[in-house]
Design a protein around this nucleic acid. Structure first.
Lengths: 120, 120
DNA sequence: TTGTCATATGAGCAATTATTCATACGACTA
DNA sequence: TAGTCGTATGAATAATTGCTCATATGACAA
């Protein structure tokens, strides 16, 4: 037990001051960790995960995805919007049909790391 | 444009039947993708992300984390519970103090893949 | 035992969010 | 031009969730 200090609105007492200070010094900018959480939040929904998985197999249009996942076109379209804003998917238009595909290979890598943990 | 079929509660028409069928055949069990989404959901909160980052630097007790992040002990404790259920952190008791640390190295890997995407 | 400190937890509230419904947009076709 | 098909989107709703507050538990000290 080392020094103790009261801080801000925390209801705690610092127990290991040097540890807290050492970690605090290395802490990345608040914003970076926030962005990281936002990215994972996009992966944190089973509908979006299934869409991403499907697109990792093949480029697909909105209707096909809706049929594949047995969901409405509207629901899929809303989620594709979220995925596109996160730059996880891109799209191209061919007449009336819009085809979606993964934006890059990071997505697959993140998937794979996740699966490693699941199957530990 | 190939065959078309109406299916279940979907308001869509299959446009590219062979694509849908090919992807459907390769589709992992519903449950696996659900579990994957659940895992990412745990990463999808900035408080938990910051806790995980802190623990990737050093083992820490609940109070220290609360002070570091300027949050209440209760809030941190609740989140540590979530992280533990997801098997992302483990803990050991030393008298009154409980120390938390990362459960394995998968966590860091998942982090790093996420950062790659952020900094693309 | 009694008191204190570190942590855990249940209930309640506020904020977020995934889906539905209705409708608008945009491109092709008759 | 009018109609149809694929897609996008705003509003509303139901469900989820992170935090707070109050309190409980568990370990040590006096």
């Amino acid at each position: 037990m080392e020094n103790r200090d009261e801080l801000d609105r925390c209801d705690c007492t610092v127990i290991h001051k040097h540890v807290v200070n050492a970690v605090k010094r290395k802490m990345p900018p608040e914003e970076d960790l926030y962005d990281l959480a936002e990215l994972f939040k996009v992966f944190g929904d089973s509908t979006r995960i299934r869409i991403l998985w499907a697109l990792s197999e093949s480029e697909m249009c909105v209707c096909d995805i809706a049929v594949l996942l047995n969901m409405t076109q509207s629901a899929i379209s809303h989620q594709l919007r979220v995925l596109k804003q996160a730059k996880l998917v891109k799209n191209r238009r061919d007449g009336k049909v819009v085809f979606y595909s993964l934006d890059d290979d990071h997505v697959k890598h993140i998937f794979e790391e996740g699966l490693v943990h699941i199957n530990e």
